[in-house]
Design a protein around this nucleic acid. Structure first.
Length: 417
RNA sequence: GGAGAGGUGUCAGAGUGGUCGAUCGUGCCGCUCUCGAAAAGCGGUAGGCCGCAAGGCCUCGUGGGUUCGACUCCCACCCUCUCCGCCA
């Protein structure tokens, strides 16, 4: 959510931003509702002030009689206000965040590559995809998962389970070395928190599983439970930003996402993820966004993967992100029509500035004693779906075995799978 | 799941229908005293909304209701604590 005052004073900027981000919101309608809201509010408040003044001391019979009608009038204004406010809030929620001036303008495919660590290594044999590799080594079972839970679920088996734990533990050590507090979160959260973060739990095109007869949903990312962690609080950031690294399960319906891209582990309904999350002062957020990106690269470098970083274009930013970087790894799975590979997303980090903080009411105390909304950032450390995928495809041997990256060997005691 | 108690400002804790947005203490900030600190004394200390401002409105777990007027009364829900039951 943005500041209504800002929207009021920068109407054209907001409209242009909406169209750059491919978001349709009726800004004129919003401003009209805003004006009506303030008019009605003023009427109600004037009457309330009068009633309060008169009712302070014991009023006369005559005054009491008049206050009865004043009460009715106030109620009328309040009801009108509620109607206006409902529509107003819906529109406010739909307005996307502002955009970083350097974010590339355009749709999904207009991203800008800002870093490539090296030319992807080519295998000197015809590489397999992770599904074939893992199946061959009895490391995964999709079929029985389909029987038990449905398509896009999986059982990990044998040493793959150990490798996945090693991956998480390696990432935990790497991130906590940068001063992040380790935390494991609930896997369900209240709908009010979901929408505060910018997810719509029960809309028509939702990616969220909701629990029937409750106000709970399964989280799609620990971003939800971590954003909610400090909801409604006034933070003390004098000692520096609050930095967390959070472990949770993630659940996504992935409605409508089928086809080549969703092969194997690339797009699944459930996975485990380690997520970085920061609450900071506005002046710090751009530097911390770079810090998160740097840690993501450090994790990748440690595993010696082939990857690149892209700056996400305006049309693909979603609602909350001010700027977003994806880190894409080289995958066999991503190959198309005879090609032997392509880049696929393995992490994503966003600077959401104060967009979520305003919805969740998270502020910090400034030195002058006043408060201001914090900036919030999030970024993937690792997960146990796409990362095992890319390790298998990158470290595969001609004989169908999978090497274990050196840095993980001490975590799981294995040299190959 | 059953029984009881309770949810008020940083914390602790008053307030049971009318100048209560809230006593007192504590914490925090400033000042005085001091070479400095402690102690002591004095003063200041919630947030949000509307407004150029003056000022006004809202918030005592949440949402309804009663009333001219609700922190105070009624209803529902949420949460916390104690005891009992159940349970990985």
């Amino acid at each position: 959510m943005l500041d209504i005052k800002f929207i009021r004073e920068n109407k054209d900027l907001i409209k242009n931003n909406c169209s750059a981000r491919h978001v349709k919101v009726d800004i004129d309608k919003l401003l009209e509702l805003d004006a009506r809201r303030r008019d009605v509010l003023k009427l109600a408040e004037t009457l309330r002030a009068e009633r309060k003044q008169i009712s302070k001391n014991k009023p006369s019979e005559q005054e009491i009689a008049r206050m009865r009608t004043v009460g009715d009038e106030i109620k009328k204004h309040e009801d009108a206000l509620m109607d206006i406010e409902k529509e107003y809030v819906d529109l406010m929620m739909a307005v996307p965040n502002l955009t970083h001036p350097e974010s590339p303008v355009g749709g999904e495919n207009d991203f800008k590559v800002i870093y490539t660590n090296r030319e992807p290594r080519q295998h000197d044999f015809s590489p397999k995809d992770h599904e074939a590799l893992m199946a061959g080594l009895d490391l995964i079972d999709f079929e029985r998962a389909t029987k038990v839970s449905g398509a896009k679920f999986y059982y990990y088996k044998n040493n793959q389970v150990r490798l996945n734990r090693a991956l998480i533990n390696y990432a935990i050590d790497t991130v906590t070395a940068h001063g992040y507090t380790l935390i494991e979160t609930p896997d369900l959260a209240k709908d009010s928190i979901l929408s505060g973060i910018g997810f719509n739990p029960r809309g028509s095109e939702t990616q969220i599983y909701s629990v029937e007869n409750s106000d709970l949903s399964l989280i799609g990312t620990a971003e939800i439970t971590m954003g909610g962690y400090h909801a409604g609080e006034i933070l003390d950031l004098a000692g520096g930003p609050k930095k967390y690294v959070a472990l949770s399960h993630c659940f996504r319906t992935e409605a409508g996402a089928y086809g080549r891209e969703s092969k194997g582990l690339y797009r699944v309904h459930q996975f485990t993820k380690l997520e970085m999350f920061i609450f900071c002062k506005p002046s710090e957020s751009e530097a911390l966004h770079q810090e998160i990106l740097g840690i993501e690269k450090e994790i990748c470098d440690g595993l010696d993967l082939d990857y690149r970083v892209i700056d996400i274009p305006t049309g693909d930013l979603g609602g909350p992100a001010y700027r977003k970087y994806d880190l894409e790894g080289w995958m066999t799975t991503k190959g198309r029509g005879g090609e032997q590979g392509g880049y696929g997303e393995i992490t994503s980090c966003s600077n959401c500035t104060d967009y979520q903080a305003r919805r969740l009411n998270i502020r910090y105390r400034k030195e002058d004693g006043t408060t201001e909304y914090v900036h919030m950032l999030n970024g993937t450390a690792v997960n146990n779906s796409r990362w095992p995928l890319i390790i298998a495809e990158t470290y595969q041997n001609k004989d169908g075995s999978i090497g274990v990256p050196k840095v993980l060997q001490k975590y799981c005691g294995l040299k190959k799978l």
